[in-house]
């Protein structure tokens, strides 16, 4: 569970961004990237949004679609912000990252 500071103005925006990123779907698994646990962190600085995320595999054929999807989604919803997506491989993605809702969608 992400922790938020209600006295911090940017934290509301971060929460909103995280909800917005639920619109980005992994085209193969058909589950949004938040429930898959691909997004590690969201940073907001002045007019910049920085997303730190991973992929389920470094050779994922859907990788460019997912990263492009994040970029498109944020540019469309936050046109006043410059968006950067940083792919990280540490910590490596594991099935433990999947949320309860994601597990339900996968049929677990």
């Amino acid at each position: 569970m992400k922790q938020f500071d209600i006295t911090e103005k940017d934290d509301f925006l971060k929460m909103e961004i995280m909800e917005t990123l639920r619109l980005v779907i992994d085209p193969e698994l058909e589950i949004n990237i938040m429930d898959l646990g691909l997004v590690y962190a969201v940073y907001v600085k002045e007019n910049q949004i920085e997303i730190e995320m991973t992929l389920s595999s470094s050779h994922c054929p859907m990788g460019s679609s997912i990263v492009g999807g994040v970029q498109n989604c944020l540019e469309q919803h936050y046109p006043d912000y410059k968006t950067t997506v940083n792919l990280v491989w540490e910590p490596a993605w594991s099935h433990k990252n999947i949320s309860e809702e994601g597990k339900r969608l996968l049929g677990i």
Partner: peptide, 22 residues
């Protein structure tokens, strides 16, 4: 379907409701 999807829809991911490869 993935190959066709990349051509038709990859650039539109995250912008709205698009079909999935399946």
């Amino acid at each position: 379907p993935y190959i066709a999807w990349v051509k038709h829809y990859e650039h539109l991911t995250g912008k709205g409701n698009i079909p999935l490869p399946a």
